[in-house]
Nucleic acid binder design. Structure first.
Length: 505
RNA sequence: GGGUGUGUAGCUCAAUGGCAGAGCAGUAGCCUUUUAAGCUAUUGGUUAGAGGUUCGAGUCCUCUCACACUCACCA
């Protein structure tokens, strides 16, 4: 059983006991709200402007976010999800007994219900002149106290804050309760997902849900989380991508499908990696990666417009313009521009490794050729790509699910999207040749074998699906969290996750 | 995993190796139009944890824990 720790908690606990002793419920079952806070204000303002003389009676509910006991008058601001309004409580309006209860028991952070009529105080602030007020829910632990001062010019100065990063993440409820800007981040996150969904629905993509628990994981190179089904005596993996299931659905004659959901990767965390993250993947039949570029740039520009009101945003001090068309450049050219290395001239891992070292770039000596190329991209190209950019045509041996470029066996038709110095998306002309796919899986298995734990196990069922015939298609995955980082101008993924993963304390 | 940094009251922060402090919140009062209200008085600490050096440690040393930044890793 919880016991009060610090003094504020002890005081609140004592108040709770006293209320209980005098028969007042601190957590009543029923509320009688007639107006949200914003409805109350709007109704009053409408009545004012039409110069109606009838009083606007309201019952509003909310959390006490500011209070000022002034002898026989008590002012409080309460806040609900729609806004903030002042309560004006006078002892001669609510009676001695109720007023005494307010004085004795109400604290910042408590939820209350107040009935009265709308009025303006002497300073002109819209308020509820209260005739009845009750407690709806007693707060036993004190929230951080943040005071606001509104300047003449309307700007708001804040005094006191709840800014400890760790505590804000660990107690996100408290962060949300006292920091409106945190609430705003997650509204934008919801708008982002809504915009993506709306755009794809309008383009006749079908939203689907595929298994999160998978007997064989695949579609990406990452280490999975494992789990176990007791009754079936079966090992299961949490998915690392949706790809292989969504493409099965194209075999099943849907022309376009998409899924927005969670991926799980058992890897390091960083400012742009969380063990579980939200991904959008969409697949379209009868197109290729050129078609995916067209859809993707319109999709993201649309989302930016819906979320921020513009296709031009500021991210970490730089302007980012989502307006299509985006820059398109091949990976080979992008790397050559920045470090003079043409990896095609270094067709073996050893040769490329020497070239990279000669250019003074740190790199791991046991990497495969494809990983060396990818490393070059990640270290010298990625951080410079602030404006939305498609990097095209990736080395074949790190892309087993993409079709090769015609007349170029070393590259596949694949692009990644870079914005704000981060990778936010990945797409291919999807490989639909079942025999080639089988060979590529086998090749990957051989290439990575023991030294690479990310090697994808062979998915026979996926190959069987493809053997029934898969239409030519393009597919694209977009990291929704990173998109939200861009739209909310946050430099870490944790700021855009409600409950980011933290080590257990 | 490596490096750098941070951790003091519920919140935000001070404290040269020498009495652990402030503002806000809280508590007891005064105040019937306040809004960072004000005034008077006042409570609140395992200084992240464990060990060490020292007459004396929030401060110096070692280890542990957590977080931040960064490097490595990372389709």
């Amino acid at each position: 059983m919880w016991e009060p720790g610090n003094t504020p908690e002890q005081d609140r606990f004592r108040k709770l006991r006293e209320m209980s002793d005098s028969g007042i419920s601190a957590y009543p079952n029923r509320v009688q709200r007639t107006h949200t806070v914003s409805q109350a204000i709007q109704t009053f303002e409408a009545a004012e402007s039409s110069s109606e003389t009838t009083e606007i009676q309201v019952t509003v509910c909310g959390r006490i976010v500011r209070q000022n006991l002034k002898g026989k008058v008590y002012f409080a601001h309460i806040e609900d999800g729609t806004g903030r309004v002042q309560l004006f409580v006078r002892i001669d309006h609510v009676g001695d007994e109720a007023y005494e209860a307010v004085k004795r028991y109400f604290d910042l952070g408590d939820f209350v219900q107040a009935s009265g009529h709308m009025t303006r105080t002497r300073t002109g602030e819209i308020s509820v002149l209260v005739h009845q007020i009750t407690l709806l829910s007693k707060g036993l632990s004190p929230l951080p106290v943040i005071k606001e001062h509104v300047n003449e010019d309307g700007s708001v100065e804040r005094y006191g804050e709840f800014s400890d990063t760790e505590e804000r993440y660990r107690q996100r409820y408290a962060d949300l309760a006292v920091n409106p800007e945190t609430r705003s981040i997650f509204r934008k996150r919801a708008l982002t997902v809504r915009a993506l969904r709306h755009f794809l629905d309008e383009q006749d993509f079908l939203e689907v849900e595929t298994p999160i628990l998978q007997p064989i994981y695949g579609g990406a190179a990452a280490r999975p989380f494992t789990t176990y089904h007791n009754q079936l005596h079966q090992d299961l993996f949490l998915r690392i991508s949706f790809e292989l299931y969504l493409k099965r659905l194209l075999v099943g004659m849907y022309d376009g499908v998409y899924e927005i959901g969670r991926d799980f990767r058992n890897e390091g965390v960083s400012f742009k990696h969380n063990p579980e993250f939200t991904q959008l993947e969409f697949y379209q039949a009868y197109t290729d990666y050129h078609g995916m570029m067209d859809v993707t740039e319109r999709l993201v520009a649309y989302a930016a417009q819906q979320v921020t009101g513009s296709t031009t945003i500021t991210f970490q001090g730089r302007t980012v313009d989502f307006t299509p068309p985006w820059n398109r450049i091949t990976m080979r050219e992008a790397i050559r521009q920045r470090c003079e290395i043409d990896y095609v001239e270094h067709p073996t891992a050893d040769s490329l490794y020497q070239a990279i070292r000669a250019a003074g770039i740190e790199v791991s000596p046991n990497a495969t050729w494809g990983k060396l190329v990818d490393h070059l991209l990640g270290t010298i190209v990625e951080p410079t790509l602030i404006q939305p950019t498609f990097i095209l045509d990736y080395p074949r041996d790190i892309s087993p699910l993409a079709k090769t470029v015609p007349d170029d066996k070393t590259h596949v038709e694949r692009f990644e999207i870079f914005i704000g110095g981060m990778e936010v998306g990945n797409a291919f002309t999807e490989l639909n040749d079942p025999l080639d796919q089988e060979a590529r899986f086998a090749e990957m298995g051989k290439l990575y074998k023991d030294e690479d734990e990310e090697a994808t196990p062979l998915d026979e069922d996926y190959l069987r699906a493809m053997r029934y015939g898969m239409p030519p298609c393009g597919g694209c995955g977009i990291g929704v969290d990173r998109l939200v980082m861009l739209f909310t101008d946050k430099s870490t993924i944790r700021e855009v996750l409600l409950f980011p993963h933290l080590r257990e304390r």
